[in-house]
């Protein structure tokens, strides 16, 4: 094998023998297909790949992947993935989570995996609803969401997931949508190639409990005019005719002529541009931003932890158990 090219793989090579059991029409099917397609194209080795997940509809994902997989407990996947990646830096670790799993019960672990910048790829499926528990509002549901647990409408403000993770010092932050495999494929590639924690929010349709929640922006016919794709090095321009531009003014995003549009740089020294763009949907008349909000290099926890071990060994030699036991003041009886 060593001197040959890696074997050509297809999407099928990444499909497990388990029957996929999401609801018919669920956005998860499209995401699964996109991930499998990307892995095949990128020449990923299934034996070296581990998909870790928490709890929720999205977290069933590992069962359908013909890689190594660990379906763990609610919210804790980032901690388990951290331990795995630190122990085994040679493995390619992916983490699948949802808005409830990562932004609610697992919020603490999410912010800390981002802070540590462990070299893993996180895909967060955001459907703004709890699906597996049959339709309660989630921490990303808008105020006024009427569901079984909020008969008069939810009253707590939702997280803006992108702003939350940017505030946690995430080094790679992107957003895509289940229904646009072309865009999703590009984002998956960029996220996977990033060294450090990559966080990708994927807007995902829950056809049972929150059908088409994103249709105002994401429906194919309106998408070009209602979304703006942030691409590094390109002007921030959108619209079917690419006739609308955006730029910063007075710490705000404002509309401008395409020729005056900002050239997007997600890799600057701070995350403020990404943060402002992530808040765009809350400004009236503005498009929903997708694409790459942040792409920045920083110290990686998994690498640093292992390099300290190597340094200690280089300095004092490979530890010997006898020296450890017989250390300090000893005496004979």
């Amino acid at each position: 094998m060593t001197l040959q090219d890696p074997p050509k793989r297809t999407r099928k090579d990444f499909q497990s023998d388990q029957e996929v059991r999401w609801c018919p029409g669920c956005g998860d099917y499209a995401i699964l297909a996109s991930v499998q397609k990307y892995m095949a194209e990128a020449g990923v080795d299934p034996a070296k790949t581990v998909v870790v997940s928490g709890i929720g509809c999205s977290s069933r994902f590992p069962y359908y992947m013909n890689t190594y997989g660990f379906h763990t407990i609610h919210g804790r996947a980032p901690a388990i993935a951290t331990g795995l990646k630190v122990a085994r830096p040679d493995l390619d670790v992916w983490l699948i989570t949802g808005d409830g799993d990562s932004m609610s019960i697992g919020g603490n672990h999410l912010i800390h995996v981002l802070r540590r910048n462990v070299n893993i790829t996180i895909l967060m499926f955001n459907n703004e609803i709890y699906g597996l528990t049959k339709g309660q509002y989630s921490p990303t549901s808008p105020v006024g969401t009427v569901k079984k647990s909020t008969p008069m409408g939810s009253v707590d403000r939702p997280f803006n997931p992108l702003q939350l993770v940017l505030g946690s010092q995430a080094t790679f932050v992107a957003r895509s949508v289940d229904a646009d495999p072309g865009h999703l494929g590009k984002i998956l590639k960029a996220a996977h190639e990033h060294q450090g924690t990559s966080f990708v929010e994927i807007l995902q349709n829950c056809v049972i409990f929150n059908k088409d929640f994103y249709k105002d922006a994401m429906e194919r016919s309106v998408r070009p005019d209602k979304t703006v794709d942030l691409v590094a090095g390109e002007p921030v321009v959108y619209g079917k005719e690419r006739d609308k531009g955006l730029r910063f003014h007075d710490m705000q995003v404002e509309a401008c002529a395409p020729g005056d549009a900002l050239v997007w740089n997600p890799s600057g020294p701070n995350s403020a541009p990404g943060f402002l763009m992530a808040g765009l949907s809350e400004q009236a008349g503005m498009p929903t931003p997708i694409g790459i909000f942040r792409d920045y290099q920083a110290l990686r926890y998994d690498t640093e932890v292992n390099s300290q071990v190597q340094k200690a060994v280089a300095k004092s030699g490979q530890g010997n158990l006898k020296d450890l036991v017989y250390a300090g003041e000893t005496w004979q009886v």
Partner: peptide
């Protein structure tokens, strides 16, 4: 005890601490 190959992770909480250990055992 790093020269003995020991890795220590000071986790964000007790739950993360055991979960990181489980992740390491899995690996």
């Amino acid at each position: 005890y790093k020269s003995h190959g020991v890795i220590t992770i000071q986790a964000e909480d007790e739950i993360a601490a055991i979960c990181a250990a489980i992740g390491a055992s899995y690996g």
